[in-house]
Structure formats: structure tokens, C-alpha cells
Computed example of a mutant assay.
Amino acid sequence: MAKEPATAPELRKAAEVSDQEIDATVHAVPADLASESYPLAKGWTLNLVVTLRANTRAAEALTTDKPVWKRHMVRTAILLAHSVTR
């Protein structure tokens, strides 16, 4: 089991989060920015406020009309975030 706080890659390595769950989060986050947190998987929650505050490029990308760049920046922010908690 991954220690807290854990990143998405650490949770993936510990087999607590699947690639499909990370992909689903990447696609769902831009559509659900009103929420402060997003359920990643199996009780793990991603703090969106902290995640986007820590990655200004992702926050900037969310304001554009470039869906591919937006998706890549959100994925990067999610993978780098240390705000995943149980």
C-alpha cells in the first residue's frame, strides 16, 4: 500500500490505481473544475485546488480552447501532484 500523501504514479506502482482510472481523471477534471476534490480510485482523492495551484501551466491550459494541450497539461499536473489522499 502506498504511503500518504502519494502521487498517482506511486499509487499506480502499488497497484492501487489503474491506468484507466488515471485516464478517466484526466478527462473528467476539466469538466468538473467546480469541485475542490476529485475521486481518483479506491478511496483516493485528488485535491484539484492544490494540484492546479502547484502547476500554473495546467491552470493556464484550462483557460484555452486547445483540447490536446489542455489534456496533456492536466495529465502532467495529476502525475506530479502530491495531493492524493485517502
Rank of each mutant, 00 (worst) to 15 (best):
Met1Phe: 10
Ala2Glu: 14
Ala2Lys: 07
Glu4Leu: 10
Pro5Val: 03
Thr7Glu: 10
Thr7Ser: 15
Ala8Pro: 11
Ala8Asn: 11
Ala8Cys: 11
Pro9Leu: 01
Pro9Tyr: 07
Glu10Trp: 11
Glu10Gln: 15
Glu10Cys: 01
Glu10Asn: 06
Leu11Asn: 08
Arg12Trp: 05
Arg12Ala: 07
Lys13Glu: 07
Ala15Cys: 05
Glu16Asn: 00
Val17Glu: 02
Ser18Asp: 04
Ser18Val: 00
Glu21Arg: 09
Ile22Tyr: 09
Ile22Thr: 14
Ala24Val: 02
Ala24Pro: 00
Thr25Met: 11
His27Val: 07
Ala28Val: 03
Val29Ala: 01
Pro30Ala: 03
Ala31Val: 02
Leu33Cys: 00
Ala34Gly: 14
Ala34Arg: 01
Ser35Cys: 04
Ser35Gln: 13
Glu36Gln: 14
Tyr38Met: 07
Tyr38Asp: 06
Pro39Val: 03
Leu40Cys: 11
Lys42His: 12
Lys42Trp: 04
Lys42Ser: 14
Gly43Ile: 10
Trp44Ala: 07
Leu46Ile: 09
Leu48Cys: 07
Val50Thr: 13
Thr51Asn: 09
Leu52Val: 02
Leu52His: 07
Leu52Asn: 04
Ala54Thr: 02
Ala54Trp: 01
Ala54Lys: 02
Ala54Gly: 01
Asn55Arg: 03
Asn55Pro: 00
Asn55Leu: 01
Asn55Ala: 03
Thr56Lys: 13
Thr56Ala: 07
Thr56Arg: 14
Arg57His: 12
Ala58Ile: 00
Ala58Arg: 02
Ala58Glu: 06
Ala58Trp: 05
Ala59Gln: 14
Glu60Phe: 12
Glu60Leu: 11
Ala61Arg: 10
Thr63Arg: 15
Thr64Asp: 11
Thr64Ser: 15
Val68Leu: 10
Trp69Asp: 09
Trp69Cys: 05
Lys70Gln: 14
Arg71Gly: 04
Met73Pro: 02
Met73Ser: 11
Arg75Ala: 01
Thr76Ala: 05
Thr76Phe: 08
Ala77Cys: 00
Ala77Glu: 01
Leu79Ile: 00
Ala81Gly: 04
Ser83Cys: 09
Ser83Asp: 15
Ser83Trp: 09
Ser83Met: 03
Val84Cys: 13
Val84Gly: 11
Val84Arg: 07
Val84Ala: 09
Thr85Tyr: 09
Arg86Leu: 03
